[in-house]
């Protein structure tokens, strides 16, 4: 992998990590106006997938969506402002943490109904196929292990399969749906096995290793662009925090479990790898970290200083046009 790409992968993962840490810190300071769901620990997934996408490709996301947004290139200032409920937010402060979207970046929106954004990514792929632009516009549906219990996932996988749509179904299996372990709620060990039921390739990748995700995604996205249809990718991963900011995962996870995953932290194993094979230097890594750390301070400052939305915003954007 060329140096520039390596830097991009690291920068994006570190940006997500620092965004989530900063966002949580601000949430506990009372700066967020509602609940937030941190994705720290899961950074390698969205980054390894979105590294293959352009603004013309579409992703659907979840309530734990900050990582997807950042990996798809959204502006952290506008994201932070959105969480602060400010008028300069990505959605004018009307969506909040769980509904960040940027249509100019191919981001169909974080969605707080579990599984509900999956058919939207299928629909985006349907648009591409309808317009004959499959080669440069695929749909990626991000969802968690919890969403595999939703019927709409299965309907969506079937539709994508029978219509051979350019879709990549990406299940981020972080092992807990809220507080419910995947072992309890899902009847199989590898969620990627679900692909067989819909005649599409299913593959499980190491969601803590961005190189593994990158490689698996490359193949799946190429298949989609060539008109060969959908793929299901399962990423085994782990969220370091609770389901939402105030959730204490110690109530349902053991310390050993947390340790085991944190031992394989995506940033840590990336750094070890690139330093040992000399493809990046400690200096270049530090440079990126400093840049991002500064970016986070700026994002908070921007959000802090931004004005509240005008109360008239309550009534706008419900319809394109309703009554004269």
């Amino acid at each position: 992998m060329e140096k520039k790409k390596l830097e991009e992968l690291f920068e994006s993962m570190y940006r997500i990590r620092r965004f989530e840490e900063t966002m949580l810190e601000q949430t506990f300071k009372g700066k967020s106006m509602g609940v937030t769901h941190s994705s720290d620990g899961q950074e390698a997934g969205p980054v390894g997938i979105c590294a293959h996408l352009t603004d013309k490709d579409w992703i659907g996301s979840t309530h734990r969506g900050h990582g997807h947004c950042i990996a798809k290139g959204l502006d952290t200032k506008k994201m932070m402002a959105e969480i602060f409920g400010k008028s300069t937010g990505q959605c004018k402060g009307k969506g909040g943490s769980m509904h960040i979207a940027d249509f100019s970046k191919g981001m169909l929106g974080a969605n707080a109904i579990v599984g509900a954004s999956i058919p939207l990514a299928v629909g985006a792929a349907l648009s591409s196929k309808y317009n004959g632009t499959e080669d440069d516009s695929v749909g990626v549906a991000f969802f968690g292990d919890g969403a595999t219990g939703q019927g709409v996932l299965h309907e969506s996988m079937n539709l994508a399969s029978i219509w051979k749509l350019p879709v990549i179904f990406v299940c981020e299996n972080n092992h807990y749906a809220e507080a419910t372990p995947v072992e309890y709620a899902v009847s199989i060990e590898d969620i990627s096995d679900r692909a067989a039921a819909y005649s599409m390739p299913g593959i499980t990748a190491d969601g803590m290793d961005v190189f593994d995700v990158y490689e698996v995604a490359d193949e799946a996205i190429n298949r989609a662009r060539k008109g060969e249809g959908p793929t299901l990718i399962e990423l085994k991963t782990f969220r370091y925090h609770g389901h939402f900011h105030a959730d204490d995962p110690k109530k349902y996870r053991t310390p050993e479990e947390d340790e085991k995953w944190k031992d394989r932290d995506c940033l840590k194993i990336f750094e070890e790898k690139v330093i040992s094979n000399k493809s990046m230097t400690l200096e270049s890594i530090k440079k990126i970290k400093d840049l991002i750390d500064k970016e986070m301070l700026e994002a908070v400052e921007f959000a802090e200083k931004s004005p509240m939305p005008d109360i008239s915003e309550l009534y706008s954007d419900v319809y394109v046009k309703y009554k004269d």
Partner: peptide, 13 residues
């Protein structure tokens, strides 16, 4: 649900 969801995704794009 899948069909309507796909139609919404198509309308959004």
């Amino acid at each position: 649900a899948g069909v309507l969801g796909a139609a919404i995704g198509a309308a959004l794009t």
